[in-house]
Amino acid sequence: MQIFVKTLTGKTITSEVEPSDTIENVKAKIQDKEGIPPDQQRLIFAGKQLEDGRTLSDYNIQKESTLHLVLR
């Protein structure tokens, strides 16, 4: 499924993921596309910071959901 990751600069990254993918996994995909190390990434969805060990389905993230990427 496709999800969108919006950066603070307003850029939107499209990523191909599975509901069973972990947040860590998603951060790795963002690193592949943007070159941002996962340890600098914080992903936010519905006002919550997403934890690395959890999966997209844990957070009820569905296709075409938009996550927000904040850098630390």
Rank of each mutant, 00 (worst) to 15 (best):
V70M: 11
R42F: 13
T7K: 04
K33S: 14
D52A: 06
T55V: 06
T66H: 15
H68I: 15
G47R: 05
S15N: 08
E24T: 08
E51T: 06
R72E: 11
A46D: 12
D32R: 12
K33C: 07
L69E: 01
R72G: 09
S15L: 15
R54A: 08
V26R: 01
T9D: 13
T12M: 12
T55R: 10
D52M: 05
A28C: 08
T9H: 12
A28N: 10
E51A: 08
R54K: 13
A28G: 09
L56Q: 00
G47W: 05
E34P: 03
E64K: 08
E18N: 13
N25L: 12
R72W: 13
F45C: 02
E16D: 11
I23D: 01
A46F: 10
Q2G: 06
T12S: 06
K6G: 03
F45M: 04
Q40K: 11
I61D: 01
G53S: 11
L50D: 00
E18C: 11
Q49D: 14
V17Y: 06
T22E: 02
G35A: 05
T22M: 06
L50H: 01
V70W: 09
T14N: 06
D58M: 05
Q62R: 11
L43E: 01
I3P: 00
I30E: 00
V17E: 00
D39R: 11
I3R: 00
M1T: 03
E51F: 08
T14I: 14
K63G: 13
I3C: 02
S65W: 04
P38S: 15
R42Q: 12
S20A: 08
G47M: 04
R42L: 15
G47T: 04
G47Q: 04
N25I: 14
F4G: 02
I61S: 01
Q41Y: 15
D39W: 14
S65C: 04
E51N: 07
R54I: 06
K11R: 12
H68C: 11
D58T: 04
L43S: 00
N25W: 10
S57G: 10
E18M: 14
Q62K: 12
N60A: 08
L43H: 00
T66I: 13
T66K: 04
T12C: 12
G53D: 11
S20N: 12
K63L: 06
K29M: 14
H68R: 09
A28K: 15
T55I: 06
K63E: 11
P38C: 10
Q41S: 06
L67P: 01
M1I: 11
I30W: 02
L56R: 00
G53K: 12
K29C: 04
G53R: 09
F4M: 06
R72K: 13
I13D: 01
I61C: 00
K29W: 13
R72A: 13
P38V: 15
K63S: 15
T66A: 04
R42M: 15
I13T: 03
R42I: 15
N25E: 12
Q41L: 12
K63V: 07
L56K: 00
V5E: 02
A46S: 09
I13Q: 03
Q40N: 09
E18A: 12
S15E: 13
V70E: 10
G47C: 07
A28P: 01
T55Y: 05
V17H: 13
E51H: 08
I3V: 06
K27Y: 06
I13N: 02
D52W: 04
I13P: 02
D58S: 14
D58P: 00
Q2I: 15
T9K: 11
Q2Y: 13
D21S: 08
I30T: 02
E16G: 05
G53C: 08
P37H: 10
I61M: 03
E24L: 14
L67H: 00
G47D: 05
V5C: 03
D58V: 03
F4P: 01
G53L: 08
E34A: 14
L67T: 00
I30A: 03
E18T: 13
Y59M: 03
Y59H: 03
E16C: 14
K6C: 12
F4K: 07
D32V: 12
I30K: 00
T12P: 02
L67E: 00
K33R: 10
K48A: 09
M1S: 03
E16L: 13
L8Q: 13
Q40V: 11
Q49Y: 14
T12Y: 10
E64M: 11
L56C: 01
K27E: 01
H68V: 13
D52G: 06
L50V: 03
Q41K: 03
H68L: 15
S15I: 15
N60M: 08
Q2C: 10
G10N: 05
S57Q: 13
Q31G: 10
K11M: 09
E24S: 12
A28W: 12
T14A: 09
D39V: 08
N60F: 07
K11P: 04
K33L: 14
S15G: 06
S57T: 08
P38Y: 13
E18Q: 13
K29G: 06
D58F: 14
L71H: 07
E18H: 14
I13W: 12
S57W: 08
K48G: 05
D39M: 10
K29V: 07
A28Y: 13
V17R: 00
Q41H: 05
T22V: 04
S57C: 04
V70Y: 13
Y59E: 02
A46N: 15
L56G: 01
K63M: 09
N60V: 03
R42S: 11
D52H: 06
K63W: 08
P19L: 10
P19R: 07
T9C: 14
T7C: 13
T66P: 02
L50W: 01
G53N: 12
L43V: 03
F45V: 02
V17F: 12
R54M: 12
D32C: 08
Q49S: 10
N60C: 06
L8W: 15
K63T: 12
Q41P: 01
A46Y: 09
L50A: 00
V70A: 08
Q31H: 14
P37R: 09
I61N: 01
F45L: 05
F45T: 00
D32M: 13
Q49V: 15
T7M: 15
Y59F: 03
I30H: 01
Q41G: 05
Q40L: 11
L67V: 08
Q2L: 14
